[in-house]
């Protein structure tokens, strides 16, 4: 930045501003962000928008087609399912449930993972190496297998499947935090702080952590998409959320029974999951390339 400037004041955007400017360049990423915001608003105010209760059954309106079909009505915009429950309300509640739980899980996994990863990254010696190697191999065990074991020990249920998914997400965070801390600790600015007499805890919180947030956000979006897919997969296999609850995977497996007569009952929940995961991934991709490119300017 040692260029000659005629003007007294020059504007240097903050790193965050830089990232946003770079992120805005990609229209698709911004579109993804809009979609994600829409879903997050659904999580916050979903029950206020939903026209019906997601669990109320209506025997007079079984398997009503969506409004755009010839036999559909405007009363049930997306039609009803085999028990006469309004699909739109169920979808809204389902998005709320799936995305809300995933957000919560990612947050918990991030807190635990970063704490353990920081300890593993700052420590040296045989103990840390054994811990690291074990973690790397635990990371190789499929999520579904962890979920099966936990469900077998604790029994079927949404909360138990949440434990399983959190356990499956944590190793990834530990791994990335550890590698990041290892690399940063070698750098000069950390050495300078250490020469000033900063303790290890101080080093981590004041020197390393502020530089780690971006990595964490990107990692968090990846974990979020995995969490959404896993929760709905476990719901679909009826290991997670159970039948009447409006979880997207559960809705999909319920719709399976009437799939031939009403294809929309599996098309709608499935595409809701798809669009949700897609928007998360698009935003994550946009963020990643924004972070990669912002240093160029």
């Amino acid at each position: 930045m040692s260029r000659f400037s005629l003007y007294q004041e020059e504007y240097y955007p903050s790193p965050l501003q830089n990232t946003w400017n770079e992120f805005k360049q990609s229209h698709i990423a911004v579109l993804g962000l809009w979609f994600l915001t829409f879903f997050i608003i659904l999580v916050l105010v979903g029950p206020l928008i939903a026209p019906f209760d997601p669990l109320t059954q209506n025997i007079d309106a079984l398997l009503v087609p969506p409004a755009w079909e010839a036999n559909g009505g405007i009363r049930n915009l997306f039609g009803t399912d085999a028990l006469g429950r309004d699909l739109l309300s169920r979808l809204i509640h389902g998005c709320r449930m799936t995305l809300g739980i995933s957000l919560l899980l990612v947050l918990v996994a991030m807190l635990v993972g970063v704490a353990l990863g920081a300890v593993a990254g700052m420590s040296r010696g045989v103990r840390s190496s054994i811990l690291n190697h074990l973690l790397d191999s635990v990371m190789a065990i499929p999520t579904l297998l962890i979920a099966i074991i936990i469900v077998a020990i604790l029994g079927v249920g949404l909360v138990n499947s949440m434990w399983a998914i959190a356990l499956a997400l944590i190793p990834q965070f530990i791994h990335n935090t550890r590698e990041f801390v290892r690399q940063e600790v070698k750098k000069d600015y950390v050495l300078a702080a250490r020469l000033d007499g900063a303790s290890k805890i101080h080093l981590f919180f004041y020197s390393v952590l502020p530089n780690m947030f971006e990595m964490l956000v990107v990692q968090g979006t990846m974990a979020l998409s995995i969490a959404i897919l896993d929760i709905s997969a476990l719901g679909f296999l009826s290991l997670g959320a159970q039948a009447p609850s409006p979880e997207l995977g559960v809705m999909l497996s319920e719709g399976l029974q009437v799939a031939y007569k009403s294809p929309w009952s599996i098309a709608l929940p499935g595409s809701a999951i798809f669009i949700m995961v897609l928007s998360v991934n698009v935003v994550g991709d946009g963020l990643r390339s924004a972070l990669r490119n912002r240093m160029r300017h």
Partner: peptide, 26 residues
Amino acid sequence: LLAISVMGYSVPVFWMALLMILVFSL
């Protein structure tokens, strides 16, 4: 190609499998 691949890994596998059954076998 990037757009196709983002879509590819956002698809829930179980949903894709169901759609394939609906289309190709039923």
